[in-house]
Design a protein around this nucleic acid. Sequence first.
DNA 1: TATAAAAATTTTATACTTGAAACAATCTGA
DNA 2: TCAGATTGTTTCAAGTATAAAATTTTTATA
Lengths: 155, 155
Amino acid sequence: MTRQTDTQGDLSKDRLRVWLRMLKVTRRIEAELRERMRQEWDTTLPRFDVMSALHRNGEGMKMSDLSGVLRVSNGNVTGIVDRLVADGLVERRSVEGDRRAMRVVLTEKGRVLFDDMAGVHERWVDELLSPIGAQGLATVYSRLGRIAETTGEDS
Amino acid sequence: MTRQTDTQGDLSKDRLRVWLRMLKVTRRIEAELRERMRQEWDTTLPRFDVMSALHRNGEGMKMSDLSGVLRVSNGNVTGIVDRLVADGLVERRSVEGDRRAMRVVLTEKGRVLFDDMAGVHERWVDELLSPIGAQGLATVYSRLGRIAETTGEDS
DNA sequence: TATAAAAATTTTATACTTGAAACAATCTGA
DNA sequence: TCAGATTGTTTCAAGTATAAAATTTTTATA
């Protein structure tokens, strides 16, 4: 229980403070983005995330690819894709050569909608993070990068 | 992250990159903490948050105070408190002078458990954020602080 | 070629989350 | 006083999230 020095304990408390602030800021921005998406397009952040991943992969992605990239459970992706399919924004196609797998692709309607959303989304983020200038962006990006490296593996 | 001759568009893209990294890092740490809490005490982050708020307020808090401080909806708090009550970690007491309101308090069992959890939680956060040193902590804290000020109001 | 193991997905059970509606109690102003 | 607004909480419907079990198909291997 005895710590080696006072500064060691202070550092731990500082990390806790940073973590709590990071959590708070992230949640607030997420809440703001969620609300705007709801108002603007009657959609949600998870749906946007799925569409974004599919947009980056024009040929479509398997369900397991989606849950891997987005880091959410398989079962969760099933539900989100179900709803996107119901809205005609996404299609499930069978994978030739493997009858287990499904390839999920943006429909034309989905592509058009996402092109619209992506631009507006970038402007919203720019607005919400506007208190951070070029200098701060670089610093925060690099510090967070160190955590990203150690916490998980890839990307 | 970009050249000194940043255009407006580059800055916007940088903010998007920072946001996406922040989101990724936050989610990973949250996932890690959630998993450890599940393994260690068979509990969840939202329950920990509620207990933490109650621990800071020994006299207990009204449901509306909880949803205000934690920034989650009223209905959500109802469910989480219900489950904490079922586990005997928390108690609902009536508020003298206002028959609408309820005061939620940690039970003795809840207090003992939280004391245990809080210390371990701080060590986990210290470990997960260990790639950031004193210098980085101060910078990140101050940059995020600017956003916290503009995005929402208090605390 | 059986058959066991692995892979891709869905299903199930439970919990968290929101926004909105419903309810009850309190407060307020004519 | 007492009708209307406000406050505190719960209920409800829908969506998001996980872990674990189940299902179907493919692959490996004996």
